[in-house]
Design a binder for these strands. Structure first.
Lengths: 143, 143
DNA sequence: CTTATAAGTGAAAAACATTTTCAATTAAGT
DNA sequence: ACTTAATTGAAAATGTTTTTCACTTATAAG
């Protein structure tokens, strides 16, 4: 179940952050978007409800929400980051290289591999990034 | 076995590209570096052998080698790309978030997962990105 | 309800990595 | 050697993200 804007706002203030109109506006957009959005795209949408907001504030708010684990960030090849509401817990992505749509999935079964790598390399492994790329149903016909 | 500079150079000209001093210099650095290097870092090293080279040329050469599949590119969280000589075939990375060092590994066993996802989502999956992050042996003590 | 103040804001500038442009240079085939 | 299309490098353009700093405001205390 996706968290509501109210829930996120209240978590924010519990953590000692102020609840400004700008932050509410950013949270609203994130909560009401199914897609992964880049800061610039989010900024456009937020402006509809709050025309005076600055792009900087959007960046800052997204970073903050990300640090609190409330939204999730995906890096897409050098271009820009995208953010989306964090589904509860650990998950991964399936990205369409044609249209950029992102599907989520949750199970990955990497513990065994992780443990072996940890032993072999001496790394203390703290996380992983798993992402499949391909073409979504809609983009399979075309050139 | 890692390909030699000669081998790469000859592949380049086979593909109809000119063999310039600048390209040779970039190839030499890539072949002689064990690490994954960002274009700027590569540029610094190439300048030792070829002081007049431009950063643009380094970018262009890396892009070209990458398109030919001769070197491999890693995206590291929004910052910059890094390049390294392509080990033969499929492989993945283990990145230290402290010092940025990258270790490679080759086996990932994702076929089963991939097939299931493909069925569930309708995606035609063409590849995947698997990367572990953590702290390497040297960076585990510090703050 | 005021007040104090630390947190938050936005415009502009800085900081980056990367790409584009374009005139000058050069590798490689004839 | 000659020709020419590919390549180069400086500078400018682009695009994203961060920093700076003077101004504003949410929130807690009185």
């Amino acid at each position: 179940m996706r968290p509501s804007a109210k829930k996120i706002a209240s978590l924010l203030s519990q953590k000692g952050h102020k609840l400004t109109a700008q932050r509410r506006a950013v949270i609203d957009v994130v909560v009401n978007s199914r897609e992964h959005l880049a800061p610039a795209a989010l900024y456009e949408r937020v402006r509809r409800a709050h025309p005076a907001i600055g792009l900087v504030t959007v960046y800052r708010t997204l970073e903050m929400l990300h640090e609190l684990g409330l939204i999730c960030r995906v890096h897409r090849g050098g271009k820009s980051r995208t953010y989306t509401l964090a589904p509860s817990g650990h998950h991964h992505h399936l990205v369409c290289t044609e249209c950029g749509i992102v599907a989520d999935f949750t199970d990955c079964d990497l513990e065994v591999l992780q443990q072996r790598l940890s032993q072999e390399t001496g790394f203390k492994i703290e996380g992983h990034l798993l992402q499949f790329v391909g073409h979504c149903r809609n983009c399979q016909g075309g050139t």
